[in-house]
Design a protein around this nucleic acid. Structure first.
Lengths: 155, 155
DNA sequence: ATAATAATAGTCAATATTAGTCAAAGATAT
DNA sequence: ATATCTTTGACTAATATTGACTATTATTAT
């Protein structure tokens, strides 16, 4: 019940805004000032509590007029199927296995034909064209996982 | 929500004119005065937000009666859009420029929203997660070009 | 015509204004 | 005790703003 560290408090503050609004847009230093913490703590709070797994999208911009924007998105029903796939893929996947993953997503109706093709092209060995097989496989894993994470919610 | 910085505001102002007109022709100092910025900021706005990757052509003239003219071009009107884009991309492209390119393709109906999102995710810096900026940019270029070539082949 | 001047826009580098990363130190939970 | 989570701050990166200087074109004076 009682874990009232400042990160939790900041989390609740942001979520209370998100309860009424589609998204919240902050200036990092303002929130840091408000709660008397260093600015980078805001990054910590976001990184640990506003993940895509929890249904939050975060975008930001630096420079004058910079901001951090947190948006609550609707997670889709097959979100946990995606979780499983993501775990299976891990941090490396061969082109062959990637094909199988994309194929099964297509068969399940998660992707249409054109989308499946796009992903296969993007993760093709000749597209990536790195000399290092390990790097190639880990890039492929990150690209596919990135896309799977994107498929969790409706935009 | 708010475009806090003045460059975004100027961008929106110009684009609002372009929403109704074929092109917009300005006197640099007038716009600078209007928004209370130095004239060279107009160049900054144009250079960062009205590039060919964004689908805009800019021409200008100095001297008395000088002007800057911005025109929105439709890449689909051109028979060899993809060739042009591929050439512009070359073997390296930043995330920002990639965003502009994908956005243009979306606006021109080459990609639908979901496809555009997939490509942006696949080429996002955090997805690629290589800590070598040159490698990152060249991977991004290969992925986008690979996809563009695939689109050409498909249609 | 030509030269001087005025009226534009362009470039570039310095500075300002944000946010991001990372690792060390501190606190808390198991 | 140890592992995990939180807090902090030094350093980095991205973007925006500004202004001095340059380049180009038009107009005016000779």
């Amino acid at each position: 019940m009682q874990s009232q560290n400042i990160s939790d408090i900041i989390e609740k503050y942001l979520k209370s805004i998100l309860a009424d609004a589609e998204h919240v847009e902050i200036r990092r230093s303002e929130i840091a000032d408000l709660f008397n913490v260093v600015p980078s703590q805001i990054n910590y709070v976001i990184k640990t509590r506003f993940t895509i797994q929890n249904g939050y999208l975060v975008e930001s911009k630096r420079g004058g007029g910079g901001y951090i924007r947190i948006e609550k998105v609707n997670l889709l029903d097959d979100a946990d199927v995606l979780d499983t796939l993501i775990q299976v893929i891990g941090d490396s996947i061969t082109q062959r296995d990637a094909y199988a993953v994309v194929q099964s997503l297509y068969e399940d109706g998660v992707l249409n034909r054109r989308e499946a093709q796009l992903i296969l092209v993007a993760t093709d060995r000749n597209t990536l064209a790195v000399n290092d097989r390990d790097l190639e496989n880990s890039l492929r894993a990150r690209i596919i996982i990135g896309i799977l994470n994107h498929l969790r919610y409706e935009s």
